[in-house]
Design a protein around this nucleic acid. Structure first.
Length: 630
DNA sequence: TTAGGGTTAG
């Protein structure tokens, strides 16, 4: 409650007293099922084949400008649209059509600007079609045109075509430049091919093809960050400086964001300090990343401090910044603050978007107010013309499943095609979990086999598999679970520690302790380290079967292996001692648990009270009650 | 006129 007061003070009064802050407006494996067995279908579908399509028909234009603009007007229009994009795709196509029939032909720069406008609109596929059309019709092109087309192919995840076009560029007598190669490096990284990206970068330097610039380095640093190689990213960051290439705001922001996402927010703040000391100005992106990093730790005063700093520097928070705040408050259950921020955004012309409303709806759902969340979709969003996306529906579906209203969730799921939305793996997994949560395992298994396994567009991941394995084990379908586990392995899915923990738990609870123990013992062979949950589950399994020595030994071993027991681990072993009448050992462990700042949970307390009921005079139990239940 | 950074889900 105290936190709530502090937070509300922050949101309302802080933002209102800083008007400057708001000064501007505005796997491809599919699976098939037969009987109770699960089979992966290894065929994968490649979806994108943009370059082979020819652009034939231009949609009827709704373009409302002069139907016959002068050359100068057209050039001016293209210059403007290359920066902002056209409002409608049809408008861009109509302009292209006009340009094709212009005599004399407009300069190549105008065509390049049209392609740039399409890129701004994220219409990469259309840009590629127009580029092809230009080539076919003999419209002059230059290196800018090729670079843009190469970039479009990279955005369409067709780096292979991008490289073909690189060959085409050279064949046409152009010399690919640093932009060409930086684009290709980004394409390789985004297609999860960092080795090729590194090779290209090394060769470019070795053969002196280009001198990498700040964008090249930043692109690679970002790629490294996104793949979790932060230390290599930092090394490259220092290396570029050594090579005389000065990092800029984007470079620093990239690293700062990465550090924040790794929860190293103080190091990120250190970089903010470093950049400002060097005279490199942070911008709204830099601050938004840091604000998010601080929100993750509930460091509200520091968030306040940064917002104040932004105000001093005349940097206005944008929709991203506000969405970060809305999401953070929503996750903390501070729904009043969420509503305040949204109202504030509206007042200041920073219009909430689908991300804002999704965060609001998620906040409602976390408090169990799913109907209120649905009202946001059906009234506010509709009224404001904000189109819901699949996440909007996933939030509602999840909300209903958590409230055990699975039928309502399925209704929404069935509504998706009418809304023009395709369910994602999140949608399916939520419903699967909903069925298991409500004990409807027959429907859960049917849903998985019929809707998920047969769906070639769906790539199952470890999270989904763990939900299925847990549900199967919980309902005593151990053989089916093991069969599915084998299927996962043969399909090439590499199980993570969660999968093994789920199986170890499921097996031991279904009387297969030895199988569970074998899986546990073989984890190092799989290159996996048990985490605190895995250890705790195995300890629980031993306790359940009365193997107190094994449980205690493992308890001691986990800490020796660098894995600290948590409150669940302590309570599990303590209850194990209770059930095996080892009251003194339980007492010693309870002392240790309290010394570490943990306490007996409800289940442990209840177990102790039950024991006291039947053994009222047991001195060891009386001592425990005196010590821990007063 | 072309290349790089930030927000929401199971």
């Amino acid at each position: 409650m105290r936190k709530m007061t502090m937070r509300r003070a922050f949101t309302v009064s802080f933002l209102r007293s800083n008007p400057l802050l708001l000064s501007h407006s505005s796997g491809n494996s599919a699976v098939v099922a037969l009987d109770n067995h699960y089979y992966f279908n290894s065929s994968s579908s490649s979806s994108c084949c943009v370059f082979t399509s020819t652009f034939h028909v231009y949609a009827i234009s709704h373009f409302s400008t002069n139907p016959n603009p002068t050359h100068a007007r057209l050039k001016q229009l293209l210059l403007e649209k290359s920066k902002s994009g056209f409002d409608k795709l049809d408008d861009a196509l109509a302009v292209f059509d006009k340009m094709l029939h212009r005599k004399p032909l407009l300069p190549v720069i105008s065509f390049n600007q049209l392609l740039a406008a399409l890129v701004k609109m994220k219409e990469h596929s259309v840009a590629v079609s127009l580029f092809k059309d230009m080539c076919v019709k003999g419209i002059p092109v230059d290196l800018f045109t090729f670079n843009t087309a190469i970039n479009c192919f990279c955005h369409l995840n067709r780096v292979d075509y991008a490289f073909s076009l690189l060959a085409g560029t050279i064949k046409r007598g152009f010399h690919p430049d640093v932009v060409t190669y930086t684009t290709l490096i980004r394409g390789l990284i985004s297609q999860d091919n960092p080795a090729e990206a590194q090779l290209l970068f090394t060769n470019l330097i070795r053969f002196k093809l280009i001198q990498p610039n700040v964008v090249t380095y930043t692109t690679i640093i970002n790629g490294l960050c996104k793949r979790g190689h932060i230390s290599t990213a930092v090394m490259l960051f220092r290396y570029m400086e050594k090579k005389g290439c000065k990092p800029n705001t984007v470079t620093y922001s990239t690293l700062i964001d990465c550090l924040c996402k790794l929860r190293l927010v103080d190091q990120a703040l250190g970089l903010l300090h470093e950049m400002t000391k060097k005279g490199i100005t942070p911008n709204v992106i830099t601050y938004s990343s840091l604000i998010q990093g601080l929100c993750d730790f509930n460091r509200w005063q520091d968030v306040n401090q940064l917002l104040s700093e932004m105000n001093t520097r005349n940097i206005s928070p944008d929709v991203y910044t506000f969405n970060i705040l809305v999401d953070a408050y929503g996750k903390e259950g501070m729904i009043n603050d969420v509503e305040d921020v949204i109202e504030f955004m509206n007042q200041r012309g920073q219009h909430p978007d689908v991300v804002t409303y999704n965060a609001l709806m998620d906040g409602y759902c976390l408090r169990g107010a799913v109907d209120k969340a649905l009202a946001v979709l059906e009234t506010t969003m509709k009224k404001r013309g904000i189109v819901p996306n699949i996440r909007t529906y996933n939030i509602l579906i999840n909300g209903y499943c958590k409230k055990l209203k699975v039928d309502r969730a399925v209704d929404l799921f069935q509504q998706l095609p009418r809304e023009g939305l395709s369910p994602t793996i999140h949608t399916y997994t939520t419903i699967l979990q909903g069925y298991f949560l409500t004990g409807r395992h027959v429907e859960a298994r049917k849903f998985f086999k019929e809707k998920m396994m047969l769906n070639k567009a769906l790539t199952l991941d470890n999270f989904t598999c763990s939900i299925l394995l847990h549900g199967l084990c919980q309902n005593r379908f151990v053989v089916e679970a093991l069969s599915f586990f084998d299927t996962m392995l043969s399909a090439g899915l590499i199980p993570n520690i969660c999968i093994y923990s789920t199986l170890i738990d499921g097996l031991s609870k279904n009387g297969h302790l030895e199988k569970a123990r074998s899986l546990f013992d073989n984890l190092p062979l799989k290159g996996l380290r048990p985490d605190v949950k895995t250890y705790t589950m195995m300890i629980q399994a031993y306790c359940h079967d009365g193997l107190l020595n094994d449980a205690n030994e493992l308890f001691l071993k986990m800490e020796a292996n660098g894995c600290l027991p948590n409150d669940v681990t302590y309570n599990t072993l303590i209850r194990g001692f209770f059930h095996n009448k080892k009251y003194n050992e339980a007492g010693v462990l309870m002392d240790e648990m309290c010394a570490r700042g943990f306490s007996a949970d409800a289940s442990t307390a209840s177990a102790l009270l039950d024991l006291l009921k039947s053994q009222e005079q047991n001195p060891a139990l009386l001592a425990l009650r005196k010590k821990f239940l007063t």
